[in-house]
Simulated scan of single mutants.
Amino acid sequence: MPIQVNHDERRKLVGEVVARIIASKGLEAVTVREVAKASGFSTRVVSHYFSGKREVLLLCYRQTAIRAQQRLNSAVAAAPGDVAAGIDALLPYHAQAREDWLVWVSFWGMAIGDPEFSAVQRLQVRASQEYLQALLTTAMLPLPTHGFDPVYAARNLMASLSGMVVQAAFDPEQWPSERQQAYLRSAIKSAIESAEKP
């Protein structure tokens, strides 16, 4: 009887392996041979699922974004209306979140010159802004808003957090969890205040 192979699971596993390689060794370390070695598959199996390195990288990029979104959804479900809790899952003091950020930053250079990677990056940024906007809007509902602009607040918050998480991903010793969480709370407060009209 032939062995049943779950092709989607194999592709997913390869994407996860590629993320680990990128986070520890960089984009240039991703080769079919390296991916096969790290995943336990033969180079023939990896080549069967992917036409080349670019396709493997694109899958990894998309998978990383999906994984982060799932963490965020779980965080919001656990603490609805809590902006800090809804963002905390993305901070790079969580091992998986740190790997994700190292992967995303590695891909920024590719996104500049590659229309497909650029489109994925643009969608990811917009989805993140919409997520923050929804969190901030929900958090402000019971309060007098004074003309609160959630779009403006979300953009400010994202810009502020992006700088912090990149620093924290590459220099975790300078950015322990307590410092990241304190910065997050301060950034949320500043974003809300900047978006309130007098």
Rank of each mutant, 00 (worst) to 15 (best):
M140L: 14
M140H: 01
M140C: 10
M140W: 00
M140I: 06
L141S: 04
L141I: 03
P142L: 02
P142V: 04
P142R: 01
P142N: 04
L143W: 11
L143V: 02
L143D: 07
L143N: 13
P144S: 13
P144G: 09
T145I: 09
H146G: 08
G147P: 11
F148D: 00
F148N: 01
F148R: 00
D149K: 06
P150G: 05
P150N: 05
P150K: 03
P150F: 01
P150E: 09
P150H: 07
V151G: 04
Y152E: 13
Y152M: 15
Y152L: 15
Y152F: 11
Y152R: 12
Y152N: 12
Y152H: 15
A153M: 08
A153I: 09
A154E: 03
A154T: 08
A154C: 07
R155T: 13
R155E: 15
R155F: 08
N156Q: 13
N156D: 09
L157V: 06
L157K: 05
L157Q: 01
L157W: 02
L157H: 08
L157T: 08
M158Y: 15
M158P: 00
M158S: 12
M158K: 05
M158W: 11
A159Y: 05
A159S: 09
A159G: 15
A159R: 12
A159M: 13
S160Y: 01
S160A: 12
L161G: 08
L161K: 01
S162F: 13
S162V: 00
M164W: 06
M164S: 07
M164D: 11
V165P: 11
V166W: 02
V166R: 07
V166E: 09
V166P: 09
Q167C: 11
Q167K: 07
Q167H: 14
A168P: 12
A168F: 06
A168D: 05
A168V: 06
A169C: 10
F170N: 00
F170V: 00
F170D: 02
D171L: 00
D171N: 15
P172T: 07
P172H: 00
P172L: 00
P172R: 03
P172A: 00
E173F: 00
E173V: 11
Q174I: 02
Q174D: 06
Q174V: 01
Q174Y: 04
Q174T: 13
W175C: 02
W175D: 04
W175I: 01
W175G: 04
W175Y: 14
P176Y: 06
P176T: 08
E178H: 12
R179N: 05
R179V: 13
R179K: 15
R179W: 07
Q180I: 06
Q180E: 05
Q181N: 09
Q181T: 14
Q181H: 12
Q181V: 14
A182L: 09
A182E: 09
A182F: 07
A182V: 08
Y183H: 14
Y183W: 14
Y183A: 14
Y183V: 10
R185T: 07
R185K: 15
S186E: 14
A187Q: 10
A187F: 04
I188W: 08
I188R: 02
I188V: 15
I188C: 03
I188H: 10
K189L: 04
S190T: 15
S190H: 14
S190V: 15
S190N: 13
S190C: 11
S190W: 06
I192N: 03
E193P: 06
E193N: 14
S194D: 12
S194N: 08
S194V: 10
S194R: 11
A195N: 02
A195G: 07
